[in-house]
Design a binder for these strands. Structure first.
Lengths: 341, 341
DNA sequence: TATCATATCTGTACCGGTTTAGTGAAACGG
DNA sequence: CCGTTTCACTAAACCGGTACAGATATGATA
């Protein structure tokens, strides 16, 4: 392979065009106003002739801006994350920013990821977190203290924390799901809940309870079973529930919903004829089930996009206080829910 | 908010420790050998006292290495990409590299992404591509010419192109799937194929044909229908196929497989009692179907990991010729295949 | 005692951009 | 006609690291 060609720098371009480096720099940064048309043209030609492309690293060192934001995801294996990346990437690209991605399955690696990205001088950080209620936040508050713009998605933070949050309204989603079942005439509505150490689990459970209360329905404790978001836990929970004869079930997670569906089918029952089902989470995941599951669709692409927008605001105006943006879920009515027989 | 503290630089640390910047730099880069224990300790203390962290941007400018690689994905919406990111991210992190991610749905945005990443001085590029047989490669060959280390995953390139490839053995996977059906005693084995403008579609079809030929089975043209990888096309293809009474179907894509499953069920038939089914692609996607589908599992996480490893080799030794690494798929036998009745 | 090698440490020119302060000439105003 | 703006452009100091070419002290050798 050939020796890598001697890099063409801004000074080379300046010499080629017979102007100063400042002039070339001005040209590159669109400060065309203070330049004669003739000079502009000479610089343009020189750049073209040399095939010059400015070095972003050098620029970043001088400007202290990298036009890069860091996205740290605490569970890259969770099905929720791809849409977040999609939304964040699109918003970044539109704003001429790049996306530095890191996976951080535990608190320790999250700390390291934050540290590394700070050294890499990212202009801001987005954290998309697993929903543990007792997640550690000290390193984020510390980085924020030192002036690093941060936005979190789906993360429990202490009341009044100065860091902007993008949250998905789990309570509201669960409420909508349960109300839908109530409106179909169901009265024995069960719930397979997420774990109690996740705010997603707690909020969805609370939404379920609120909808029942609003409808004047008493809560039968045997109709609420806690799972761990896995297919298997949904399967097992549904097996138990079937003994208590609910006519509908609201399931607080998509994998659990597919597990529940399987348990129902293994018991020789049919959806929605014998039992109505509403799932929660990634709508694609349960779309191609048979029957297609009615589900609560969380606007996750949107969450990624909005997180980037909030972050860019922060980068432009660091003093902006920490707001919380709550995103509304939608109920997608498909084939797994029907009026009570 | 407070004024951002004046940055602590390597010169500050040097002054604090009473040594030269070179010495601090040596300390930071592990050249401890040429340093007395006492000096080492003084530098350590100074760094700690000032809370100093080196600026990677400045380092990158000086060394011409960013310890960052670019991952450009041509269809972030495809279900195959998350595992690739997962594998690539893990391999990067282990090698102390960072991952810059870009989505590039079309050739134009791919060109721009390559260009941007080159300006950002990434040490190398990985492209995970959609499988079109006529995809444009000129910009990659051009970048390679200029010394940018590149590795592609799942991309059609001209014979003898100097760019290393990581490929998934679609032919072999399809062969395994079809042979599995043959071994179960099936003789009328249908195929729902991917599009003819995708090498994944062509290779899987070829693998299917090879397995039939090996078993001495004639190919009935009506048993091969081309889909477009969508759920709907799988549904429609299966409706047509049902008229021709196959006893088994190998389906060259996971969404199409779920569509086919749906069509079978809508026709009042059962899997695997009336019809055996083998899918192809993301194993999770069809795992939670009822019944769980037998499928060909492509080692996609592995592909991301190996791509990074190949790339790092290239970065270390740029003259290494362009090899092709073919990854073996696995057949996961689940519930959708049974011996012929 | 002079000479040389070794170990430890330093001064400073880079890397390739941006930006501030300033220059000279032309245009302008009274 | 002369002082002041304005215009178009430039020189050089940064940004914060790395790394090369020495400098100095110490001990070994002749």
């Amino acid at each position: 392979m050939r020796e890598r060609a001697n890099r063409t720098t801004i000074r080379r371009v300046a010499r080629e065009a017979g102007v100063s480096v400042t002039t070339v720099s001005n040209y590159l940064n669109g400060r065309h106003s203070q330049m004669s048309a003739a000079t502009r043209e000479r610089v343009r030609e020189a750049i073209e002739r040399l095939g010059y492309h400015p070095n972003h690293v050098a620029r970043s060192l001088a400007t202290r801006r990298t036009a890069t934001i860091g996205l740290i995801i605490s569970e890259l294996t969770n099905a929720l994350y791809p849409p977040v990346i999609l939304g964040a990437e699109a918003a970044c690209r539109q704003a001429q920013y790049s996306l530095l991605l890191a996976n951080a399955p535990d608190t320790d690696s999250e700390r390291r990821a934050v540290e590394l990205m700070r050294r890499k001088q990212v202009d801001g950080l987005i954290l998309f977190s697993v929903s543990f209620i007792d997640i550690a936040n000290d390193h984020l508050l510390h980085a924020h203290e030192e002036g690093v713009p941060i936005v979190v998605i789906n993360r429990a933070m202490p009341e009044g924390a100065p860091i902007p949050k993008v949250m998905l309204d789990n309570f509201r989603g669960a409420y909508l799901a349960t109300r839908h079942l109530v409106e179909l005439g169901h009265r024995r509505i069960a719930h397979i809940a997420g774990p109690a150490n996740r705010f997603t689990g707690l909020d969805r459970r609370a939404g379920y309870l609120a909808a029942l209360a609003e409808a004047g329905l008493a809560v039968d404790p045997v109709l609420v079973i806690e799972g761990d978001y896995s297919f298997e836990s949904g399967y097992q929970a549904m097996q138990v529930l079937l003994d208590h004869r609910p006519s509908a079930v609201f399931i607080g997670g998509d994998a659990m919903a597919l597990g529940a569906l399987r348990a129902i089918r293994d018991a020789g029952l049919r959806v929605p004829d014998d039992l109505s089902l509403v799932a929660f989470g990634n709508p694609d995941f349960v779309h191609y089930a048979t029957p297609a599951l009615t589900t609560v669709d969380l606007p996750i692409v949107e969450a990624g996009k909005i997180a980037v927008e909030l972050l860019l605001e922060r980068i432009a105006a660091p003093e902006t206080p920490g707001e919380t943006r709550m995103l509304e879920p939608r109920l997608l009515v498909r084939e797994s829910t029907a009026p009570i027989a």
